[in-house]
Structure formats: structure tokens, C-alpha cells
Design a protein around this nucleic acid. Structure first.
Lengths: 135, 135
DNA sequence: GCTTGACCTTCCAGTTGCTGGAGGCCCTAA
DNA sequence: TTAGGGCCTCCAGCAACTGGAAGGTCAAGC
């Protein structure tokens, strides 16, 4: 199967698939004409990558997950640990963003937002006193 | 004032300051020996950049904010609009992450996490049926 | 048999916002 | 005079692709 067909079947851009090959995440065979030749096992790997990437795993984490995936004797505890770590990371990001949002909202609250130039948001950015806390 | 001193005063790495100059966000004077020579107005801009970057504004947004900052006749409404847009963006990111977290948590829930190889997380990544919804 | 156009190949460059390092000048103090 | 720091520029690299150029391949239509 050519790369275009694989791309259609999986829903990953052609460029992305080539990139995944370049960094060693898939190793499709080659036809005589030099074209990549994907078989079902390759599609399976690509699907796996697509799903794990969409769940926020980094490329390196995907590499690790893939190798666990192909290890018939892996312990589910290992997979669970990786996933737990990812959840913590996501939670950290969320709380950072929450705090950012509070700060921005406070600033917006304080700004009359009309044609006049006076602006508490600008004052805060410029480092004037009494900025809303960023936590 | 040399770049090292400016860096200490503001708390931005020397490399970052040089980068900001490269992309035209600051334009410090030069001494005869070729060294950058920062004055208070430059520090002010750098502080402004530091704060707006820390609030999640992109470099291009910072450029826009800076030009508003230096426009004596700007309308506070413009600043407020930019900030509001940023809040929406932050909210979008938060809800994406929330949904991600739910999916990952569901997966972790379902996984016994012991030495056996059977693993619902892997099954989901591999595209087996009954995956927890990602929303 | 030839052309057209879709598809494939590789390689290089760009994205964002820096960061690290090499190689080399400048300045001050001992 | 030499050692050390600080400063300079330029190049490369991070993540994870994405776009484009230049060129080979293939199938269909005339």
C-alpha cells in the first residue's frame, strides 16, 4: 500500500507519516520503485501513534509506549505509571492556565475599555504598582 | 548600561534580550566598543515584554501591545479586546486539557496495573473497541 | 507512443521562542 | 603581561511537524 492510501486509511498527513519514519517510529518496506509499501502492521503502529499523540503523549513517550505495546510480556503497571505521570502533567498545565485566566480576567474587569487611553491592563504590563496577583 | 547589568535588573536572560533585539522588540544604543548600551526606557520595554510574555501573549501580540503601550492616544478598548481574546484562548486550552484528563483518568481507572500484560490503556491506544470517549 | 496529471521520492527551509556553543574581541585588575 | 570575565556575532538545535522545490514513476487517454 502506498503512502497516500495509508494516509487516507489512518487520517495522518503524508508528511507526518514520512516524519515518523525518519525518526524511526515506523519502518515500512520499500517497493522496487522506491515507494514506501505499508502493510497492516504498519497501519496498526500509525493508528497507535495517532491515538497516543492525540492523548498528549510526546514523541518520546510514544516511542516508549510503542515498545511496551510490542512487548508481549510487558506489565500493565508500566503503562499505567506512564499514563498517571501524564495526568499529573496535564493537571499542572491546567492549574497554570487557570491562574493565568484569573489574572487576565481581573485585568479586564478593571479596564473601562473605551476610547480613552488610561488602561489598568497597560499599567500592569508596564509594572505599575497594585497589579492583580498572578498567584 | 551593559547587557549583563540589564539582564540582572530585569531578570531576563542575556540571550533572550539579544533575541528580542534581533526581532526588533528593543533597540538599545551601542557604545563605541560595540557593546549594547541600555537605558531606562529600554529596561521599561523589557519589563513590559517580560510581564506580557508571562501572561501568555505571543511575541507578535507583545509587539502589538508594545505599540499600543507607546501610543499616547490608544484606546483602552483595544487593549481590552486583545486581553479578552487571550482569555478565550486560555479557556479553550483549559477545556481541551480537561477533556484529555478525563480520558486519561478513565483509562487509568480501568487498568488493574499489575505484572500481567493485559492492559485496557494499550487496548485503547491500539484502537480496540470500547474506548472511553475523548468528548 | 506521447502527454498529462496524480502520486511518489529526497532535501531544504520555516514555524515559536528561545538556548547553547564556538571563536574571537574588549576591559580591568593583579 | 596575563588571566578572567563580559561582550560580540554566527550557527545549530529543541518539538513536531509543515511547505515547497526539483525530479522520478505510473496509469489513463489520445
Amino acid at each position: 500500500m502506498n503512502i497516500g492510501t495509508a494516509s487516507d486509511r489512518i487520517g495522518l498527513p503524508v508528511k507526518t507519516i514520512r516524519y515518523y519514519e525518519e525518526i524511526g517510529l515506523v519502518r515500512p518496506a520499500r517497493s522496487e520503485n522506491g515507494y514506501r509499501d505499508f502493510e497492516e502492521a504498519d497501519l496498526q503502529r500509525l493508528k497507535f501513534l495517532q491515538r497516543s499523540r492525540s492523548l498528549g503523549f510526546s514523541i518520546e513517550e510514544c516511542r516508549e509506549l510503542l515498545s511496551l505495546y510490542e512487548d508481549r510480556n510487558r506489565a500493565s503497571a508500566d503503562v499505567k505509571a506512564l499514563t498517571r505521570a501524564k495526568i499529573l502533567e496535564v493537571e499542572r498545565k491546567i492549574s497554570e492556565l487557570e491562574s493565568l485566566k484569573r489574572t487576565l480576567s481581573d485585568l479586564v474587569e478593571a479596564c473601562h475599555g473605551d476610547a480613552r487611553p488610561e488602561c489598568p491592563i497597560m499599567d500592569d504590563l508596564a509594572g505599575k504598582k497594585d497589579p492583580p496577583s498572578t498567584d
